[in-house]
Design a protein around this nucleic acid. Structure first.
Lengths: 159, 159
DNA sequence: ATCCCGTTTGCACGCTCCTTGCGCGTCCGA
DNA sequence: TCGGACGCGCAAGGAGCGTGCAAACGGGAT
């Protein structure tokens, strides 16, 4: 089993905030030596507790003006059809997140697009015509209150 | 205006995939010298095209078993009430993403929780009783097809 | 208490990587 | 044609990395 103690938690919390922290900076924050942080970080990476590091890019600066949530209902719920839909989702880069959900819709997608034309194109020309899809409904994001992928580690117990 | 050329795009694409790439690795990928990559990276950080770097942690490994989307309708749409709701959302770490949307609900929240008890607690003990909130509806994520924050830079033109 | 053994730690050292200064080539406007 | 601005690679000094090593720690068994 993966075990994560209080030092690991400090390291994880810090790296979640700033993924380019040096081991020395990490050492100060965690109250450990740099070499030890290096070793722990390596272990956490190997055990896939840390699954990767990514730069966060500004969608505004790069001209992505539209974010949308798209609810999708499948035509049939056969395994083949699901598979087709998943393959479709996977090859569309504009779709950042995709989940199957309890409730009304089968799937929810979050897409980032340059403009409304891009959204229209995605919905009307790509998703709607696909054989696996029965019905599509999209909502446009008006305002982003919060957008991160940080886990709430604050109250995690060592173990 | 921010200008991003083909080299910058290669750098951004690479860092979006692996945020801990060294300047030397970047140099190979972009066909540039390491020093130049360092300079460009610094510029992109200063101009906030790169807004930060983050480690991606495994929610499974750390015991977060439940992801939920929560649709929220506000009691009234006064500025004060929105402000109260935003403040609430901001101080709840379990809420990773929060958006105001076109369509039925006023807001959609994405929350990560340890278990269903955690979700119940969030919905019934925190959101529902809050004065700003009129109505709440939650959907639990059954399967994650895709989960990233990568922008589709592929077809971006230099400029 | 005492011993033993596995684990974790800090330190030292050799090596890689980062960043800044510098000189060179290129492009564009005067 | 000339001059300035810009972007480039190179080199060097300094920072950061990770492995080896010995000491400190902790838990169990005697």
């Amino acid at each position: 089993m993966i075990s994560v103690d209080a030092f690991d938690l400090k390291i994880l919390t810090a790296l979640q905030d700033d993924g380019r922290l040096t081991n020395q900076e990490l050492a100060e924050l965690a109250g450990l030596s740099a070499s030890q942080c290096s070793r722990r970080r390596m272990r956490l990476e190997q055990e896939k507790v840390i699954s990767g590091y990514h730069a966060d890019l500004s969608s505004e600066a790069l001209g992505f003006g539209v974010i949308a949530f798209i609810q999708v209902g499948l035509a049939t719920h056969s395994p083949d059809n699901s598979k087709r839909f998943r393959a479709l989702v996977n090859r569309i880069d504009e779709i950042q997140e995709a989940y199957s959900l309890t409730g009304d819709a089968d799937y929810v997608l979050k897409a980032v697009l340059r403009d409304l034309k891009g959204l229209s194109n995605l919905v009307n020309d790509v998703l709607m015509p696909h054989q696996s899809v029965a019905h599509v409904r999209s909502s446009i994001v008006l305002d982003r209150l919060k957008e991160s992928a940080k886990l709430p580690l604050r109250d995690l117990k060592a173990g």
